[in-house]
Amino acid sequence: MMRAFLALLARDLRLAVRLGGGGGMAVFFFLVVIALLPLGIGPDRELLARVAPGMLWVALLLAALLTLDRLFQADYEDGSLDLLSMGSLPLELVVVAKALGHWLTTGLPLVVVTPLLGVLLNLPGEAYAPLILAMLIGTPALSFLGAIGAALTVGVRRGGLLASLLVLPFYVPVLIFGTGAANAASGGFSGEAGQQSLILLAAVALSSLVLGPLGGAAALRANLR
């Protein structure tokens, strides 16, 4: 079972690398949104520093949403999802492999470029470490919760847009606790609030690791039959 799981994960990663697109597009989107922001609200460095953590998180959420339809759609269209659902691997683990692959090819690259974009937004120096840490904890939750939305809309016309609408409310806690960690570091709140939000973020992420595969597999079963 483990071997089947790893084989599926490796296949997804290989496909992502070979075909390119997805993850790279998300990073590019992230960059463009952040570049648009100062053009919209003005180049005031102090203002930018204050909104930077929240804006980085919001842009990251949008970039991650953009790639959700990649999660199951291609496999659904070429029929391999049907094969997977009949294979030896439980559907829950298929969702885990898919979400993990999504995180490795989309969430992780987004976190990696965040420091660079932080410079563009004049993010205060002491906020970098907590922000990156929060993103490392929070982005898996985005992939796993997103898997539910992607599974619900698999095989639906313009499913990507619908998946985003379905999933966004579930991203609210990640956004709140994620920005909480960085905001606490860059002043405003006590350090304790920052620690607390990191712990709460970790709790949300862990629960999404359970909820995502269960909900995603149930949604796939509903859609595949």
Partner: peptide, 26 residues
């Protein structure tokens, strides 16, 4: 199919509502 998918969404939402609610209060 719509019924089953929507039911999954409603239940995931029901589990999430307390979490969302708590995070907003916080």
């Amino acid at each position: 199919r719509a019924a089953r998918a929507a039911a999954v969404l409603a239940l995931v939402g029901a589990i999430n509502i307390p979490i969302i609610r708590y995070s907003v209060v916080w």
